[in-house]
Amino acid sequence: MSSALSIGTELASVPFDQMVQKLLLAMVAAQDEANTSFIEGVEQLAGTTVEIKYKKATGTGEEERTISGNALAFGILPTLLQIQTGTIQIKMVITMQRSSQAEVSVKAKGGWLFYSASVDAKYSSKYSYSVEASSYIEIKVAPAPPPEPLMKAIEKIAQDAPPKIPAD
């Protein structure tokens, strides 16, 4: 790379394909976090006992009674947030670099590597470059159904280890 002819290379730029890849992986990571929070929420509620005290009128007066049960049994459920669609738009500039290295031939079709740098306040200020004059990339992402083998595995686990409901 050091011997490559640099054209307009800017600081803090990343290879263009990595920018696309990281944006997609960020959505996966965000959904993973949401799933983890959901499972933690279920576990937390499963360990929470709800007690409702009330007074019942009897012939001689009042008697305090308590209804207690697991929070989940009362229908208190955590909410699973799911990313249905997402649109990421990034203002950026594209720079090019010629590469003569054979090992990057897949990435650098025609011997060129593309780099992208997001146009933020730092870039704009450092190079006196207008944000409005920048290029942009807009990626629409949508969740895909899990692969069929994985779904079959989940079904098998659910069949072999169903949730145990204690008898009355």
């Binding site: 959505m27 004059a133 290029s135 942009y136 990339i137 807009e138 629409k140 949508a142 969740p143």
Partner: peptide, 20 residues
Amino acid sequence: ITEGQSNVFIAPKINLQVRC
């Protein structure tokens, strides 16, 4: 990278506007 994971996202459309 996400092969085999329960969360898979696809990019059905990518728009690129390049000032040049």
